[in-house]
Design a protein around this nucleic acid. Structure first.
Length: 568
RNA sequence: GCACCCGUAGCUCAGUGGAUUAGAGUAGCUGGCUUCGAACCAGUUGGUCGCACGUUCGAAUCGUGCCGGGUGUACCA
């Protein structure tokens, strides 16, 4: 495929004296294996009939590449049919242990920030997307040769802490906290938020003052305040680690807001002195962004001098640039913060920071109401907790394995976990991340059709064949034509191009679609082509291809953070 | 009001300028397990690509306007 593109570029330059970049696309089988519209593109520039241009190109290219069939059709498309053996040879030439990966990002460094939970509340499905999407982006950048630093930007600073202490003293107890853990903290937090809102409506501020008092105490290093902070944070962080562990997620760093907060005030002063920021009469500090086409200034510090998100994010940005010197920073945060990040990136430019910032945003999670309407999931109507989701998913996975496998079927806990988390993650990559995502069991935990289970099953099937053939000694398969394996080979041949493209555009759902397409090809192949029972030469060729297929399938799923179970 | 995102089969979604029949999954219907595992395979029903106008040899795809849904719009995160 790549060879063909190169050849076409050479031929076009020779024939028409123009430089071009031919793009070949894999086509549906009825249109041959590959197709290009290059003749039509050239027609405009050369002012010639596209069919005639196509005919000239075809004459040359078929002469230079033996076995290639090319045909001009319609207004000037060229459809190519290539020998399967040629595709196999091309793959074999490029084959290595990490086939698909490239070095285009060599020497470049990226920071990927995910899943950045708010520590005040238990891990809910609302945190699903930042984790899965962020992890996948880190993986695809690594596959393109980047050095990647992952950092969980924990929401561990400010008001939530004060709310916890006041809530704990008023609404909870040591016993309740001991038994409820993070869920008790979450309950207290949500109840307190409700009370605070009520108070605000009534125009009083007794509770709010209390909250502020504890925040001040913490800043001053008060012993009790520090003790509570440590205690609550440990409970929450332990919970986050548990759930991330079950999801197969981890990050290199966990530098939360609290880590950056101490330096933020000094930075605000610095940029005030520079004239980059301005102080309002009420004491608040803003950064004007009109020069970037943003007419809402960014609030950098509250009128009472307190920090807010922007303040710690300023310190975060400066810290990362000073300590890690990245070329790119990716923030995996939901779509509702798009405007905020536009401001943040503009502010970064204004203070002279040069880095390619990218807000990896994604749509919200909706759920169906009882009367069949689709609406946003909210804590008021009851969020689904991640631990509940995982428990239920594992129970369902286990049940289906046992019913499908017949009596006495045993499967390891680890394989169950791979099936359960695989299904959930795959659902996140089914659609473009910009779309909202519907949370219902049919879509988030599909086990048939377009699903992780389907792809994993294909992997398990070829895994079985390869395990059976482990001791088989391959014989020379020189004359084998690979026509039966053509659909598999064509997909594998495309894989490096896909990895490279995703490294640029980060459209990770395309990886899920690739894995699914490969699984479809595997299952079809499995139905009609015997491997173990084939004669030695065919068997050798087929096993060789299946080993490559298994490696590519595993690699593509691993980018998405999905593993293939040993059995299912 | 303004900005951004979305609108494709009953449902969940791919496809974002190139050709005949716009593709998957799911739901419905039909067939296939003594065969390398049926979480599979083969077949079938189902579409004014939100609407209108425009650009083009050609529009789900590009442009403009409208309709519908969502999100955001400085002291929340």
């Amino acid at each position: 495929m790549r060879k063909l593109e190169q050849k076409l570029n050479e031929i076009i330059e020779r024939l028409f004296d123009v430089r071009s970049r031919v793009e070949i696309v894999a086509e549906k089988e009825k249109f041959g294996d590959y197709s290009t519209n290059t003749a039509m593109m050239l027609a405009g520039r050369l002012k010639q009939n596209p069919r005639e241009i196509a005919a000239k190109i075809i004459e040359e290219v078929t002469r230079e590449i033996p076995g290639l069939k090319a045909e001009a059709v319609g207004p000037g498309f060229i459809n190519f049919t290539v020998p399967a053996r040629g595709v196999y040879d091309e793959i074999s030439e490029a084959w290595h242990e990490k086939y698909g990966e490239n070095e285009s990002g060599k020497g470049k460094k990226a920071v990927v920030e995910y899943p950045s939970q708010n520590m005040a509340k238990p891990y809910s499905v609302g945190h699903l997307r930042p984790g899965t999407q962020g992890h996948a982006v880190a993986q695809i950048l690594r596959a393109n040769g980047w050095e990647v630093i992952t950092d969980n930007h924990l929401g561990d600073y400010g008001t939530p802490f004060g709310i916890w202490v006041v809530g704990f003293l008023k609404l909870s107890s040591e016993d309740k906290l001991a038994s409820g853990g993070v869920y008790e903290l979450g309950r207290v937090y949500i109840e307190m938020k409700r009370l605070l809102k009520e108070e605000e409506v009534n125009g009083t501020s007794k509770l709010a003052d209390e909250v502020q008092k504890w925040l001040l105490k913490l800043e001053q290093g008060d012993e009790t305040a520090v003790m509570y902070n440590k205690k609550f944070s440990e409970i929450s962080l332990g919970h986050i680690h548990d759930v991330m562990g079950r999801l197969g997620l981890r990050t290199d760093f966990e530098l939360g807001e609290a880590f950056f907060a101490p330096r933020s005030k000094e930075l605000v002063e610095k940029y005030l002195a520079d004239g980059k920021f301005e102080k309002n009469k009420d004491g608040s500090v803003i950064c004007k962004l009109d020069e970037f086409g943003i007419d809402v200034p960014m609030l950098m510090q509250k009128s009472n001098g307190a920090a807010l998100y922007a303040t710690t994010d300023l310190a975060t940005l400066v810290y990362r640039m000073e300590n890690w010197k990245p070329d790119k920073i990716v923030h995996a945060v939901g779509a509702e913060q798009k405007f905020y990040f536009e401001q943040l990136f503009a502010m970064g430019k204004k203070i002279g920071i040069e880095v390619d910032s990218f807000h990896l945003w994604f749509g919200l999670i909706d759920q169906m109401t009882e009367d069949g309407k689709r609406e946003k999931m909210s804590s008021r109507k009851g969020v689904v907790l991640m631990e509940e989701l995982l428990d239920e998913a594992e129970a369902r996975a286990k049940a289906i394995v046992e019913s499908a496998g017949g009596e006495g079927k045993k499967i390891s806990e680890d394989d169950i976990r791979k099936i359960a988390t695989g299904a959930i993650k795959f659902a996140d990559f089914a659609a473009d991340r910009k779309h909202g995502m519907l949370f219902d069991w049919k879509t988030i935990f599909a086990l048939t059709g377009f699903s992780a289970a389907y792809v994993q099953y294909a992997g398990v099937r070829i895994g079985r064949i390869l395990a059976e053939a482990r001791d088989f000694e391959l014989v020379d398969f020189g004359g084998y034509d690979f026509e039966a394996e053509k659909s598999l080979l064509k997909l594998i041949a495309e894989y490096p191009k896909l990895v490279a493209a995703l490294g640029e555009n980060l459209e990770m759902h395309k990886m899920a679609h690739f894995a699914y397409d490969l699984a479809v090809a595997i299952n079809k192949y499995y139905e009609k082509t015997p491997v173990l029972k084939a004669e030695a030469k065919e068997k050798s060729a087929r096993i060789t291809v299946l080993r490559q297929v298994a490696q590519v399938l595993e690699h593509s799923l691993s980018i998405l953070g999905i593993e293939i179970p040993g059995e299912m």
